[in-house]
Amino acid sequence: MASALSEWVDKQISVITCDGRNIVGQLRGFDQVTNVILDECHERVFSMEAGVEQVVHGLYIIRGDNIAVIGELDAELDAKTDLDTVRAEPLKPVVH
């Protein structure tokens, strides 16, 4: 378990944003207000019709306002998962 983001620097993390997107990338930095630097990141787009689509994004700064959840990515589990077979309803945006 991590009690702070610093334990995840340079590790693969998964960010769920307030608009319901899931972005996976390497955490390169963060600040007091949870603005986050994500390197080599991609978005995972879930749908019921097709497997998970991965959209490559590159280097991102995500503003803390827009972040709902951050978690460490389990590399082992991730490697085992065949994302093409995964069907899921896309997340709804956060209601303020």
């Binding site: 944003t17 608009d19 390169r28 630097i37 390197d39 080599e40 994004h57 590159g58 280097l59 991102y60 700064i61 995500i62 503003r63 306002d65 827009n66």
Partner: peptide
């Protein structure tokens, strides 16, 4: 205004 930003995408080499 910074407040209104969701995210920024910047060139890879900047890091």
């Amino acid at each position: 205004r910074g407040n209104s930003i969701k995210y920024l995408r910047i060139p890879d080499e900047i890091i």
